[in-house]
C-alpha cells in the first residue's frame, strides 16, 4: 500500500473490533464509577499530575494516586488471567522519551488526554473536549503521515 493513498476504511484482518469494544466498555465503566462515585473526571494526565504534585487543584492526592496505581494493577490482572498481551515497541527508547516529554507538555497545556477529553468530555458533549479530541487526533494523523513520508514509519 502506498504511503499516501485514499484512506481504506474496510476492516483489516489485524483489527480487533470485538476486543476493542469490550475493553472500551470496561474503560467507560471505570470512568462511570469515578464520576458517579467520586464526582470526578477519570482523566489520566490530570490524575497523574495531581498524584506527583504537579497540578494545583484537582482531586485529593490519595484519590489521584489510587487511580494511577490501579492502571498497572488492572493490566497485570489481565496478563495473569489471560497471558501476555501484545506490546510492540519497534521505535526505540529515544523516541519513547521524546514523545513522553511532548505528551507531558501537551496534555497539561491542553488540560487532558484521550481519557479526560476523548472519553469523559466527548460523552458529556463538552465543546472544549470535542475540539481538543479533534486536535490531537488530527495532529497524530499528520505526525504519522509525515514520519512515514520521511521513511521513519513502523
Amino acid at each position: 500500500m502506498p504511503a499516501f493513498g485514499m484512506p481504506d476504511f474496510a476492516m483489516p484482518a489485524f483489527a480487533m473490533p470485538g476486543q476493542g469494544l469490550i475493553g472500551g466498555l470496561m474503560i467507560g465503566i471505570a470512568a462511570a464509577i469515578m464520576l458517579l462515585g467520586n464526582g470526578r473526571i477519570a482523566g489520566v494526565s490530570g490524575m497523574a499530575a495531581r498524584a506527583v504534585g504537579l497540578s494545583d487543584g484537582g482531586a485529593p492526592r490519595s484519590i489521584a494516586w489510587a487511580f494511577v496505581i490501579g492502571l498497572p494493577i488492572g493490566a497485570a490482572i489481565v496478563v495473569l488471567a489471560t497471558g501476555p498481551v501484545v506490546a510492540r515497541y519497534p521505535m526505540g527508547l529515544a523516541t519513547v522519551a521524546v514523545a513522553g516529554v511532548v505528551v507531558g507538555i501537551g496534555t497539561r497545556l491542553g488540560s487532558g488526554c484521550t481519557s479526560g477529553h476523548g472519553v469523559c468530555g466527548m460523552s458529556r458533549l463538552s465543546k472544549r473536549s470535542i475540539v481538543a479530541t479533534l486536535c490531537f487526533i488530527a495532529a497524530g494523523i499528520v505526525t504519522v503521515a509525515i514520519v512515514n513520508m520521511l521513511g521513519g514509519g513502523w
Partner: peptide, 29 residues
C-alpha cells in the same frame, strides 16, 4: 492553550503510539 496543547499531545501520541493511560498501565507489562 487548549488547542495548541492538544495538538502538541497529538504529535507526541503519533511519534510513539503512547498516551498517558497506556503509558502508565504498561509499567506492569
Amino acid at each position: 492553550s487548549l488547542i495548541g496543547g492538544s495538538a502538541l499531545f497529538g504529535i507526541g501520541w503519533g511519534l510513539a503510539g503512547l498516551c498517558p493511560g497506556p503509558g502508565i498501565a504498561s509499567l506492569a507489562t
